[in-house]
Computed example of a mutant assay.
Amino acid sequence: MFLRKGAGPRVVTLPNGVQMSRADLPPAGTTRWVARRKAAVVMGVESGLMPLDEALERYDLSEEEYESWAEMASRHGTEGLKTTQLQRFRERDGGDAA
């Protein structure tokens, strides 16, 4: 698979030592969001692999949607990004988290 050279690094090393490249990100235009894909987008932006504005455009996300993903991922990890778990985490945290 050939990847065009874009802005930013091609590969980054995550805090857990795993390397992540743009090939590890979901395809542009993804509409079915599972926890693993949401986590990949959040990790890609937070590690500097892709700027936030590019992620918002590439995946047609709002800033609020991305911020909710980032917050739930930082609080609860990938489990917090599962839609079936949102209500449970909201009740436990005592507020709106999505």
Rank of each mutant, 00 (worst) to 15 (best):
R58C: 12
P51S: 12
R32Q: 15
L86V: 11
G94T: 08
M43V: 01
K5I: 12
G8A: 09
E57Y: 04
L86Q: 07
L3W: 05
T78G: 00
Y59L: 01
G44Q: 02
S21R: 07
P9R: 10
E54K: 06
D24I: 12
R10N: 12
D60H: 10
S47F: 05
G8Y: 05
M50I: 15
A40K: 02
N16A: 13
L61F: 15
T84A: 13
R88A: 15
P9N: 04
E63K: 09
E79K: 11
G17W: 04
V18D: 14
V41T: 03
H76E: 09
E63H: 12
T30Q: 14
E64F: 07
K82E: 09
R10T: 11
S74F: 02
L81K: 01
S47L: 05
G6Y: 08
E79I: 01
R36T: 14
T13C: 14
S62E: 13
L61C: 07
S62Y: 00
V45S: 06
Y66H: 06
G77K: 02
L81N: 04
G8M: 08
A40T: 02
R58H: 00
G94A: 10
L3N: 01
V41L: 06
S68N: 14
A55I: 04
S74D: 13
K82C: 07
D60S: 14
G8E: 08
V11N: 07
A97L: 15
D96T: 10
P15K: 11
G48D: 06
V11S: 13
V34T: 10
G77I: 08
R90S: 12
T31F: 08
E65S: 13
T78N: 00
S74H: 15
T13M: 14
A35E: 15
Q85I: 00
M72H: 03
V11C: 13
R37F: 13
R92N: 09
M50E: 07
G80A: 02
M1I: 08
K38L: 12
Y59N: 03
V42D: 02
G29K: 07
A35V: 03
L56V: 07
G94K: 04
D96A: 09
T78W: 00
D53M: 02
A70F: 01
P9W: 01
G44Y: 01
T30S: 11
V11I: 15
R32F: 08
V45K: 02
Y66T: 01
R22W: 11
G8K: 02
N16R: 12
A97N: 14
G6D: 09
H76G: 02
A23N: 09
L81I: 05
L61R: 04
A70S: 15
A23W: 04
A23S: 14
G29P: 07
E46K: 13
T31M: 10
V45D: 06
V18M: 14
S47Y: 05
T84S: 14
E71I: 05
V41Y: 03
T84H: 06
T84Y: 04
M72W: 00
D24G: 12
N16E: 15
A55K: 06
D60Y: 06
L14M: 15
D93L: 01
Y66S: 03
V41E: 04
S62N: 05
A97F: 03
E64W: 04
A73K: 11
V34E: 13
G77C: 10
S21Y: 01
